[in-house]
């Protein structure tokens, strides 16, 4: 049963890492109304992560818990897409500092939720009934995230000169990271074989259509891909994840065994 666990962790790590990133805006949003919206997205993602970790912990048995999985695994054990761990700004090294850019946030949420609406939809038929139930719940949430981020993507792209430039820069920066969606990790391959997961590759045309349609409406162009394909989902991450986890896990790790 070890394969579905790895796959569950991939899904859970995706959700927790992006939830952590989105929550960074709490109190700093561009307008109060938007602060509320992004906190909701973050809450959905953390809720998804909890359910997925709980399911994984259940299958692992022993003393595994959702928090042990979220707080006591190192960066090399995390299985999230590299896309999701990046800070809210353009390409910079791990220890560089820069202002958060809302276009980066929105474009990332869009690219990811455009994938996940299809993934969750497919996972409703998972051979793991617990995962199927999580998928049904997550699908509704993710549909809203897609709606929210797509709406903003179009507003930014077709807004002012500055917002267009920022949105285009974010698309150029982030789009290459989506190539990771289409490679098959051992965990994914095994989960597909066990009928627990669906083949993400098969979702590519639907994702492309969704993305191309939104970019066109936003008057943005899609960059051609050439280069390095990230491998976060097999544990090879960017420099940014260890900072994110260092912050997220620090307090919990300072008090191992404590309950909160």
């Amino acid at each position: 049963m070890s394969t579905p666990i790895d796959y569950l962790l991939h899904l859970a790590d995706n959700a927790v890492v992006l939830g952590q990133r989105n929550a960074e805006w709490c109190g700093h949003g561009p307008i109060l109304e938007e602060d509320m919206a992004l906190a909701n997205v973050s809450l959905d993602l953390i809720g998804q992560a909890r359910l997925l970790y709980q399911r994984a912990a259940e299958l692992m048995g022993g003393d595994a818990t959702e928090d042990k999985l979220a707080y006591f695994r190192g960066p090399h054990e995390f299985r999230n897409y590299t896309l999701l761990e990046l800070p809210h700004h353009g390409a910079l090294v791990g220890y560089a500092a820069a202002d958060r850019d809302y276009a980066t946030t929105i474009v990332r949420n869009f690219l990811y939720s455009a994938l996940m609406v299809h993934v969750w939809d497919g996972l409703q038929q998972s051979a793991d009934p617990a995962l199927a139930a999580i998928a049904a719940k997550s699908l509704k949430e993710t549909s809203y995230h897609l709606h929210h981020s797509r709406d903003w993507l179009v507003r930014m792209g077709d807004g002012t000169e500055e917002s267009h430039a920022r949105a285009q820069a974010a698309v150029n920066h982030l789009m290459p990271y989506t190539e990771e969606f289409w490679t098959t990790s051992p965990a994914e391959g095994a989960a597909v074989a066990a009928k627990v997961a669906i083949d993400v590759w098969a979702l590519r045309p639907a994702w492309d259509a969704l993305v191309n349609d939104a970019l066109a409406e936003a008057t943005l162009t899609r960059p051609n891909f050439h280069g390095y394909i990230t491998e976060g989902k097999i544990g090879l991450h960017s420099e940014h994840l260890s900072y994110l986890l260092g912050e997220m896990q620090g307090l919990a790790r300072a008090h191992p065994g404590a309950t909160w």
Binding site: V16, Q20, A23, E24, C26, G27, L32, E33, D35, M36, A39, N40, S42, L43, I46, G47, A49, R50, Y53, E66, D67, A70, Y71, E247, M248, G250, L251, A252, H255, A258, W260
Partner: peptide
């Protein structure tokens, strides 16, 4: 403390609470 909340449950509670405060301001 949102980013450093020591459990996922506490993190979710804290986000919801801070968000509520934004709502109250609104």
């Amino acid at each position: 403390w949102i980013s450093r909340a020591p459990s996922l449950k506490r993190k979710a509670i804290l986000i919801a609470k801070v968000q509520d405060e934004g709502g109250h301001g609104l």
